[in-house]
């Protein structure tokens, strides 16, 4: 008998508490949190408690940016989103709080700021590696296929290193040795763009620890020239 009564006690106050929260929306903090949550609810798929790809598409069109815009990827980075195409409520709350925004219009205004934040060097490396991990959709997946890599390269590095990225994509599509790209190779693409003089590639040293795929790439470029 006693155990039963105690379990009842537990459930009843919890219910009461939550209704209480809704009824007394008095403090400012709570209003803000509610605004964030409400915004979340307006895009979320209620059956899974997450914003799904459809919801993200709706969000994009409301923000006036393309679904494939790099700023959406940056937004996902800010949210520290785990799963590609989905935002959980927790991710949404921490992300929006970090951006200091509560409403759609504020979020829209914050996007350019976010972009310049990402473009600072230490953030960018982090964002760049996030972009790769964000593509790992399957459990235990560690590599990303060449086609997605080409798209991703164009998306994240295209504006900064257009000629290198174009050439690299051309090579990746041409070669047949690699079907997938690892995180290490991916990270070294960024290092390559940052460190190697272009278009002469004069300071590239194939005896250094560059991944083999870049040795092949440089060989290919030199042969082509």
């Amino acid at each position: 008998m006693p155990p039963r009564s105690s379990s009842k006690k537990k459930t009843v106050p919890a219910n009461a508490g939550s209704t209480d929260d809704h009824s007394s929306a008095s403090s400012k903090a709570k209003t803000k949190k509610d605004q964030i949550d409400q915004l979340f609810d307006s895009y979320a798929n209620s059956s899974i408690q997450m914003i799904d790809p459809e919801g993200i598409e709706a969000l994009c069109s409301d923000l006036g940016v393309d679904y494939t815009d790099v700023r959406i990827l940056m937004f996902a980075w800010k949210l520290k989103a785990e799963k590609q195409g989905y935002f959980t409520l927790d991710e949404w709350r921490t992300g929006l709080k970090a951006l200091g925004v509560n409403t759609l219009s504020e979020l829209k205004k914050a996007l350019p700021e976010l972009e310049s934040e990402v473009r600072t060097p230490p953030n960018f490396a982090d964002f760049y590696s996030f972009a790769f991990r964000y593509c790992l959709t399957e459990e235990k997946q560690k590599t990303v296929d060449i086609e997605s890599i080409c798209e991703l390269l164009n998306l994240v590095l295209g504006s900064q290193f257009q000629p290198q990225v174009d050439l690299l994509i051309q090579y990746l599509k041409f070669q047949s040795d690699y079907k997938v790209i690892t995180l290490d190779q991916w990270m070294n693409f960024l290092r390559f763009c940052n460190e190697i003089s272009f278009p002469d590639l004069g300071n590239y040293d194939s005896t250094a620890a560059w991944p083999l795929i870049l040795d092949y790439f440089v060989e290919w470029v030199k042969q082509k020239a």
């Binding site: 590599t143 690892t182 290490d184 190779q185 620890a209 991944p211 083999l212 040795d215």
Partner: peptide
């Protein structure tokens, strides 16, 4: 050299080594 590099890369991928 190529074989060596390839092996290192595979060990990195398998998380035995890291850069």
């Amino acid at each position: 050299r190529r074989e060596f590099k390839m092996q290192i890369e595979s060990l990195i991928e398998q998380e035995y080594l890291m850069r």
